[in-house]
């Protein structure tokens, strides 16, 4: 029973994957195959991460100012 389910599942997976690859629509496949996509992801990811960390630092700075104002009252 288990084997049959496995066979069936792999068959479905095969159908699905062949369906998605049978199309002739041009995509950046070579770019991905070369692995260059990871370079782009690394650059954009680091930029976003850097900006978000900067936002956290800004957030902390504002918290400090809030507290100094509240303690001066």
């Amino acid at each position: 029973m288990k084997k049959i389910t496995l066979l069936l599942l792999s068959f479905i997976a095969y159908i699905v994957s062949s369906y998605s690859q049978s199309s002739d629509v041009p995509m950046a496949d070579q770019f991905r195959a070369d692995g260059k996509i990871y370079v782009v992801i690394a650059v954009i990811g680091i930029l976003f991460l850097g900006m978000l960390v900067y936002l956290i630092l800004l957030d902390k700075k504002i918290s400090k100012i809030e507290q100094s104002i509240n303690s001066n009252k």
């Binding site: 992801i41 954009i44 990811g45 976003f48 991460l49 978000l52 960390v53 956290i56």
Partner: peptide, 8 residues
């Protein structure tokens, strides 16, 4: 942060 980085 996690969601935005995940999105990228």
């Amino acid at each position: 942060i996690a969601l935005v980085i995940y999105t990228v």
